[in-house]
């Protein structure tokens, strides 16, 4: 574990240093990413000039949801986003080169092409989240602060798990980038809005199948002292860390199975 983290740091560091040779371009890309994602939120804000509430939530509260989900996806994308490339690596055979190095292949693929400019997205999410927290009427307490912090970590872990699951799938299927994007970026778009606007089936699947509702929805209900519109148990509102552990475990199992199958089928 420690050696994997060290290897991740080494590989990511080499990429950061390489990108710093073009410092101006790096700064432009990072700022650009932050601006593009800001426009993304501006679209939601404009929508609220016509309505006062969406699914029972104010603009500030939607900003809270948006910020939590955006931060989690941004962090996961920064740390694990490159697993998208796995399909290509399997097809062109360079995945084999990763299997003959003394570092876990998942670490190598995740840290490969590590792009610090993705911090732009995280910065934007933090800004929106900060504004959302200020604009929502939250009755602060110590447990609420803890839930918020735990959720940011758990949400990142959940999206990381989705990236790794997608990676495992790509090792087997050769190419499934689009399927994977549907869950990561698609999941992010879905959770940017209050789940109360979706049918109950959608909510159930993002609770029990792909646990994206734990990235922001359940903890936000707790922070805002809102009753669950779908009447699901309130225990779910503190369960994000549990969901993150389960998702990570499922991803680890799938990844191991994927690599094992690759090594035993050769395809």
């Amino acid at each position: 574990m420690a050696s994997s983290l060290r290897a991740y740091g080494l590989i990511a560091g080499a990429w950061v240093r390489a990108s710093m040779t073009y410092r101006a371009s790096f700064v432009a890309m990072t700022v650009g990413q932050a601006l593009i994602t800001l426009i993304d939120f501006a679209a939601i804000a404009i929508m609220f000039s016509h309505i006062d509430e969406l699914g029972g939530f104010t603009l500030g509260e939607v900003a809270l949801l948006y910020g939590m989900s955006g931060f989690a996806l941004g962090a996961a994308d920064l740390l694990m986003g490159n697993t998208e490339q796995l399909g290509r690596r399997v097809r062109d055979g360079s995945f084999d080169a990763m299997l003959v190095r003394p570092v876990a292949p998942l670490v190598q693929i995740a840290a490969d092409q590590f792009a610090l400019r993705r911090v732009g997205r995280i910065t934007q999410a933090v800004a929106v989240l900060g504004w959302g927290l200020a604009a929502s009427n939250i009755d602060w307490s110590v447990p609420k602060v803890l839930v918020l912090l735990a959720t940011l970590v758990s949400g990142s872990v959940i999206f990381c798990a989705v990236f790794v699951l997608g990676g495992a799938f790509q090792v087997l299927a050769g190419d499934a980038t689009e399927v994977m994007n549907a869950f990561t970026y698609g999941g992010n778009t879905l959770t940017q809005f209050p789940l109360s606007i979706y049918p109950a089936e959608v909510v159930r699947s993002v609770t029990f199948i792909v646990p994206l509702a734990f990235v922001n929805w359940y903890p936000a209900l707790y922070l805002l002292d809102v009753e669950d519109p779908f009447g699901l148990p309130s225990a779910l509102q503190y369960a994000s860390p549990v969901a993150a552990v389960l998702a990570a475990a499922a991803a680890a199992v799938a990844w191991r199975a994927g690599v094992r199958r690759y090594r035993s089928t050769g395809s």
Partner: peptide, 25 residues
């Protein structure tokens, strides 16, 4: 291990950086 048809080096990194990275790995 050297595979003739595909490189084990990091495609976008200068050779020097690839070597330094491998040495540390």
């Amino acid at each position: 291990v050297v595979f003739g048809h595909r490189s084990g080096l990091w495609w976008d990194l200068p050779l020097r950086d690839s070597f330094a990275l491998l040495a540390r790995i």
